[in-house]
């Protein structure tokens, strides 16, 4: 029987290795019934985009705590667009100052989760906003 599942790629772009949040989220997403591909630390935008397309995910979740999100998040969104995959939703999490948010939304990020966001609130957001594509 047809059984559409939400597929999510979780990645840590850049050089920062603080993956506590990403690891906790990977388990959370599994427990929420999603299929999660976690690509670990130290990914370039090119690697993340390549993996997202091959895995046909519905959403890419990026985590960055180093401050390099201003370059890395838009780079992922832009490369997805260039490769005809603008339908893959990109969201980000980490230490993202208020003034960086609008430029990231403008670059195509659909949601940003900052310190203190609960696991449930993130799962709820996904269930509301991400539909497995047909």
């Amino acid at each position: 029987m047809a059984d559409r599942k939400i597929r999510i790629l979780l990645a840590k772009p850049g050089l920062d290795g603080h993956d506590r949040g990403a690891r906790v989220l990977a388990r959370t997403f599994r427990d929420a019934g999603f299929e999660v591909i976690y690509t670990g630390c130290h990914q370039t935008p090119e690697q993340i985009v390549g993996a997202a397309i091959q895995e046909d995910v519905d959403m890419v979740g990026l985590s960055c705590l180093s401050g390099a999100h201003r370059y890395l998040f838009p780079a992922v969104a832009q490369q997805l667009q260039e490769q005809g995959a603008a339908d893959i939703t990109v969201v980000g999490g980490g230490i993202i100052p208020e003034q960086d948010m609008q430029p990231l939304y403008d670059a195509g990020l659909k949601a940003l989760f900052t310190p203190g966001a609960t696991l449930d609130s993130i799962v709820d957001w996904i269930n509301e906003n991400i539909k497995p594509r047909v």
């Binding site: 850049g14 050089l15 920062d16 370039t44 180093s66 401050g67 390099a68 370059y71 890395l72």
Partner: peptide, 21 residues
């Protein structure tokens, strides 16, 4: 981060990270 990971600032892996942390 580039210094911590043993990359120079002009490495492609270092983009966007210089001096950040």
């Amino acid at each position: 981060f580039p210094t911590l990971m043993g990359y120079d600032t002009d490495s492609p892996k270092a983009r966007g990270e210089c001096g950040k942390c």
